[in-house]
Write a protein that binds this DNA or RNA. Structure first.
Length: 433
DNA sequence: GCCCTCGGATACAATACGTC
DNA sequence: GACGTATTGTATCCGAGGGC
């Protein structure tokens, strides 16, 4: 019984010393330093047992444990003057005893954990996407150098799954549902959501080249969705669709059999699937204006009560940062405008929230699709008209807005940003009637 | 989605150690 | 014993994960 307690104390002492060792420079450098890891019993979690006046045997057991460890050459103990075998001064972990200390405690050496985690990341070094490759290389290097990597060393399987997902991303089809991905990779439809999604999102927020808004925006950009999404369109847009599902195998003959559609005929607008957008080609845009709308409620309102923009008006719902298939449609439209230069088209507008996110989405659309994009009802006058119904925002948003003031290309937004910072309120487009 | 807890990372001050 | 360096201790921040 007593021997068992001595063993328990030995394990606890070694565990504490190993923790200190793993935090020391000696561990990071991989070579013993000048100072050994050390601790005082009185300053440790063993102090309570060591000073237990109701049961002095505990101190004896701790002394016995230390005596055995010293005898084995794993530790060394110093005693203050005149207190030999009465009160321990310091306990040192001998570097040559580290390996045996791990054996005693049954803990996995931190060096092994780091090495195994680093090996997991090796396949990322050949990843086709720069930003994943860079992260993989940098994290691998940090692990090799035993520097803090931000990874949980005890979750080997979790990072194995993450790497598997990262490697699968470039080959994913757009709009791949989470559960389909999970089933395909892990033969378990929920494992992605339960064990990988959070970690992937946290990584994407850190390393994805664009700053997006919501978690689902980040997942969508790498091809993962909860469920496939539709792109909502209303107004004069004339497209052609192949008569049969032809995809990449379409011949010129098939294409010749294509059907034409004019969206104007659909008074409530239409929803286009990713597959349809992939297949369609644009025949004409007989609109005088195009309006991109950030918010779903506003999109439906605009259909029911057309806004005061040049009619006929083509309306496209972007849903915040547009998802991949909406982006594909926007690309087709922008290419059509660029190459065909439709005569009737007088302007392209975007209507979003008057806040940090709204401004960033506008600039994203402008940069990637429509260089001549103009804001609609996102000006100072509209803001001041509705600011009383606005929602307050905190310090974090203020800092982000202040940062926008320093970025090139945001000069036209300075008056709006100044007002946003002055009132500390954001105006959602649903509140604008 | 929010809140709470826990653990790891980091910075900095205090302390101990090694060398001369 | 003085000084420079390494280690330890402490406070704080941040992200992950779990519970609701």
């Amino acid at each position: 019984m007593a021997q068992k307690s001595v063993d328990q104390y030995k394990r606890r002492i070694l565990s504490l010393l190993l923790k200190k060792y793993e935090r020391s420079q000696s561990f990071q450098a991989g070579i013993p330093g000048k100072q050994r890891p050390q601790m005082t019993i009185k300053g440790s979690e063993l102090a309570k047992d060591y000073d237990d006046e109701m049961d002095y045997r505990k101190r004896e057991l701790i002394h016995n444990a230390l005596q055995e460890l010293c005898h084995e050459g794993i530790t060394e103990v110093t005693w203050p003057k005149h207190k030999e075998n009465i009160e321990v001064g310091k306990v040192y972990l001998n570097f040559e005893g580290v390996e045996r200390a791990y054996l005693h405690t049954g803990e996995k050496p931190k060096g092994d954990k780091i090495r195994q985690l680093a090996e997991l990341l090796i396949p990322l070094v050949h990843h086709p996407w720069d930003w994943v490759r860079t992260w993989g290389e940098e994290t691998y290097r940090r692990l090799e150098e035993r520097r803090p990597s931000g990874l949980d060393l005890d979750d080997h399987q979790g990072y194995g799954d993450l790497v598997q997902v990262l490697l699968a991303l470039p080959g994913l089809e757009e709009n791949t549902p989470k559960r389909v991905l999970s089933q395909k990779l892990f033969q378990d439809s929920k494992r992605f959501e339960q064990g990988v999604e959070r970690r992937l999102l946290s990584l994407l927020r850190k390393i994805y080249p664009e700053e997006l808004e919501k978690d689902e925006d980040y997942l969508d950009q790498v091809g993962i969705v909860e469920n496939p999404k539709m792109t909502l369109v209303f107004g004069p847009l004339e497209i052609e669709m192949p008569t049969e599902l032809v995809g990449n195998s379409a011949t010129e003959e098939d294409r010749a059999k294509s059907l034409g559609f004019n969206f104007r005929a659909f008074q409530g607008g239409l929803g286009l699937s990713a597959e349809s957008i992939k297949e369609l080609s644009i025949r004409d845009i007989p609109a005088r204006a195009i309006l991109l709308v950030e918010n779903l409620t506003t999109y439906h309102e605009v259909i029911r009560h057309p806004v005061q923009l040049s009619a006929p008006l083509l309306v496209i719902y972007t849903g915040g940062f547009p998802h991949k298939s909406t982006q594909r449609l926007l690309k087709k439209i922008s290419t059509f405008i660029e190459t065909q230069n439709p005569l009737s088209l007088e302007g392209i507008y975007h209507w979003g929230d008057i806040d940090y996110g709204g401004i960033r989405i506008f600039e994203y659309l402008k940069e990637h699709f429509f260089p001549s994009l103009r804001p609609y009802r996102m000006d100072v006058v509209t803001y001041l008209d509705y600011v009383t119904t606005g929602l307050s925002f905190g310090e974090e948003q203020c800092l982000k807005l202040e940062q926008l003031l320093t970025l090139p290309g945001y000069e036209t937004w300075h008056p709006v940003i100044t007002e946003l910072l002055r009132h500390r309120k954001r105006v959602e487009q649903e509140s604008i009637r």
